[in-house]
Each structure stands twice: as structure tokens, then as C-alpha cells.
């Protein structure tokens, strides 16, 4: 599939397909690493998603790290003031929701917000620039530049959040409390009298219900971000097929997309904080 399309897509279907294809590498059954023939192989890596995700994460870390290193209380530079506006915004958002003391949640929220924001922001680079550059100059056949349109990336983050939810639940309620939360809600099983026969059924029912609720959190978190960004990217690709009319349309959609980019980053961050707050709340 890769080698046939390496000379450029012909039909609009091919064009869209080409834009939605990740640059993949995986280990084949024969033991050697092969490129772009990894459909369905769970041992593959989406090199482009990983590259852009790490690059943008480094951009965040270096930008904020520099500001933090040079941070002076007396005479803040304009760059420091700009960074502090973002930090203060995150800090007040977290404080409004999470009332406990935690050294992790605020930095986690900042990292998620800035990282997701930067990854989403790649959507505003015209869809053909980087793929064409990598195809013609670097001879890389596929290049998907928006990491958040890759479901692996969004799931990767939401699974980390999921483990944090479990960690905070156990930390605040203990292992027993966590199990009780999963099994004794929403229907309290009878623990005395003849009704005790029904208790295992009620517990099993509760457990299924609560597990679904628990698993729905990371799932909805990642699918919301992925869906929004994927749809936005797809519309950019469709607009790019329209010839000269793409110019005003692209501009309009890009302006609208600035809102989505920021909003989705903010929602991902805010929901993470809300889930962790719920997990660490004591009943």
C-alpha cells in the first residue's frame, strides 16, 4: 500500500486515505522491522504520531522550563509574565475544583492542557505542507502531523489518567473502600436475614454497573478528544480538495478551529481534574 502511493495520490479517495495514514513501523513474523505494512499488528508504532507528540511535549517542557529557570519575583520578563498567566489560569481552575492538597494534580493539569493544546494546534498548519515536504524532500511516504487525531495518543493519555483515578481512589479510601465503592453501590446488598441469598447477585450487578462507569471515564475522555480532532482534520482535508474555493473556507474553518483546539485541551484537562477530585473525595 505504501509503495504504490509513494508517488502521490490520484483520486480524492486516495488523497484522503493518504492523509489519514500513519507512518508505521512494526516487527514482522519473520523478525525484521517493516514499514507501513502493519495494519492490525499490535506491535507496531505510529512513528509520526510519536515524533510529533514527543516534539511538542519537548516544546512545552523547554518553554516552561526556561521560564521556570529564569523566574524572578522582582522583575519578570514579558515571556515569564506570559507563562505565569497560563500557570495562574491552570492553578485557579484546579483550585476551583480540587480542594485537597496535592503536588501532582496542578502540574498534571498544566502538562495535559499545554501538551494537548500544542498537539491540537498542529491542525492549523495547512494539511499539505508537512506531508508534501516529507514526501518530496525527505522521501517519507506518510506523515500525519496532528497526534491527537491518532486514537493511540488520546488513549495513551487517558489510560495514564485512568491509573491515576484508581491510585487516588485507593489512596483516599483504601483498597477495601475502593472495592466497596465498586460493589456496594448503587444498590446496597442486604447483609442480614433471609435476603442475604440475593446479596451475591446484587453485588455482581453493582460491580458490572460501577465498572462500566469507571471504564467510561477514560474512554469518553480519549474518544471525545480524538473524535473532535479527527473530524476537524477530516474537514480540513475535504476543504483542501475544493480547488481555489478552499482559501476562504479554510480560513473560516481555521478560525473556528482555534476555538475547538483550545476548548478540547481545556475540557481534557478539566475532566481529568474532576475525575481525580471525585476519586479522592471521601464519602
Amino acid at each position: 500500500m505504501a509503495t504504490e502511493n509513494a508517488h502521490g495520490p490520484q483520486t480524492s479517495g486516495d488523497y484522503i486515505q493518504h492523509h489519514l495514514q500513519n507512518l508505521q513501523v512494526c516487527k514482522a513474523d519473520s523478525g525484521e522491522w517493516i514499514w507501513n505494512q502493519c495494519a492490525g499488528n499490535p506491535m507496531g508504532i505510529n512513528v509520526d504520531s510519536m515524533f510529533w507528540s514527543l516534539l511538542l511535549g519537548l516544546v512545552f517542557v523547554i518553554m516552561f522550563g526556561l521560564a521556570a529557570k529564569k523566574a524572578s519575583p522582582e522583575r519578570p520578563s514579558k515571556f515569564q509574565a506570559f507563562i505565569e498567566i497560563i500557570v495562574d489560569f491552570i492553578d485557579s481552575s484546579v483550585r476551583d475544583t480540587f480542594h485537597g492538597k496535592s503536588i501532582l494534580i496542578a502540574p498534571l493539569a498544566l502538562t495535559i492542557f499545554m501538551w494537548v493544546f500544542l498537539m491540537n494546534l498542529m491542525d492549523l498548519v495547512p494539511v499539505d505542507w508537512i506531508p508534501l515536504f516529507s514526501e518530496k524532500i525527505l522521501h517519507i511516504p506518510y506523515m500525519k502531523v496532528v497526534p491527537t487525531t491518532d486514537v493511540n495518543i488520546t488513549f495513551g493519555m487517558s489510560i495514564a489518567v485512568f491509573f491515576l483515578i484508581i491510585f487516588y481512589s485507593i489512596k483516599s479510601k483504601g483498597v477495601g473502600g475502593f472495592i466497596a465503592e465498586l460493589t456496594l453501590h448503587p444498590i446496597a446488598p442486604p447483609l442480614k436475614g433471609p435476603g442475604i441469598i440475593a446479596a451475591p447477585i446484587i453485588i455482581a450487578f453493582n460491580f458490572i454497573l460501577e465498572s462500566v462507569a469507571l471504564l467510561a471515564k477514560p474512554l469518553s475522555l480519549s474518544l471525545r478528544l480524538f473524535g473532535n480532532m479527527f473530524a476537524g482534520e477530516l474537514i480540513f482535508i475535504l476543504i483542501a480538495l475544493l480547488g481555489v474555493w478552499q482559501l476562504p473556507l479554510h480560513f473560516g474553518w481555521a478560525v473556528f478551529h482555534i476555538l475547538i483546539v483550545t476548548l478540547q485541551a481545556f475540557i481534557f484537562m478539566m475532566l481529568t481534574v474532576v475525575y481525580l477530585t471525585l476519586a479522592s473525595e471521601e464519602h
Binding site: P42, M43, V61, G65, A68, P107, T111, N152, M157
Partner: peptide
């Protein structure tokens, strides 16, 4: 497809959050 990228992203997220928690948030 779900593949190793997911784990890679999780690991990078843990590293970035750790870095932010250690070196970015406190001094700012």
C-alpha cells in the same frame, strides 16, 4: 489500530508530567 504507540504515549506523558511537577511548577 491500537498498537505500541499507546504505551509510548503513556510513558512520555508520565515523563513530561514528572518533569513538570519537579522542575516547572514549583519554581514558577
Amino acid at each position: 489500530d491500537i498498537n505500541l504507540t499507546l504505551i509510548g504515549q503513556s510513558i512520555s506523558m508520565i515523563l513530561f508530567v514528572w518533569f513538570c511537577m519537579k522542575f516547572i511548577w514549583p519554581p514558577l
